[in-house]
Design a binder for these strands. Structure first.
Lengths: 86, 86
DNA sequence: GGCGATTGTGCGCGTACGTGCACAACGGCT
DNA sequence: AGCCGTTGTGCACGTACGCGCACAATCGCC
């Protein structure tokens, strides 16, 4: 599942949590975060700390994969632009 | 590339940035974050905000994929445990 | 209809974030 | 040797984080 922003992440976490039959309180306890924060995360809070996010992701039996865009356009663009800029 | 914690993420970002021929200042400008923060991110700061992380990832022409563990053990465990707990 | 579980959210607190600036160290290149 | 680009890091500032508590709303189930 691709997550491009905080909202995507929040919705996906909520999805997986429910699929695992866990309440916010359950998951929060497992991941050692507060339920308050988890609630905010699921609502798409962009200022959540990644350390806590990794905890949640791990507690859900998930992991994050960082991959290059299918279309190399952006990457190539950035590279060429950086050369041109200098 | 699998990233399981802040350190992994930082190292990977640094790797991809250099592969793209960008300096910290370049990437920071592109992603609209401070170079100060990017330096911290690359050194594995676990308290970095995910909103800014998404900016960096996007600016590098990457994206995050959230996937279930290859071994369903953890997930299954969590599910069964949650049932048993209640 | 009533009850328990779940979730959203306001408040207050202590803390650390992210930013900009500035400087030092390091390295490559001429 | 001198210079410039790059990076790490200390400092100070304004801001908002994450947490715990508590209450209201909602939902499902008996």
């Amino acid at each position: 599942m691709r997550v491009s922003n905080a909202r995507d992440l929040g919705l996906y976490v909520r999805d997986r949590r429910r699929a695992a039959g866990l309440s916010q309180a359950d998951l929060a306890t497992r991941a050692t975060v507060s339920r308050r924060w988890l609630s905010d995360l699921e609502s798409g809070k962009p200022t959540a700390e990644i350390g806590l996010v990794f905890k949640i992701v791990g507690a859900l039996g998930l992991y994050l994969d960082c991959r290059p865009e299918p279309t190399p356009a952006v990457d190539l663009d950035a590279y060429l632009d950086s050369l041109g800029g200098q």
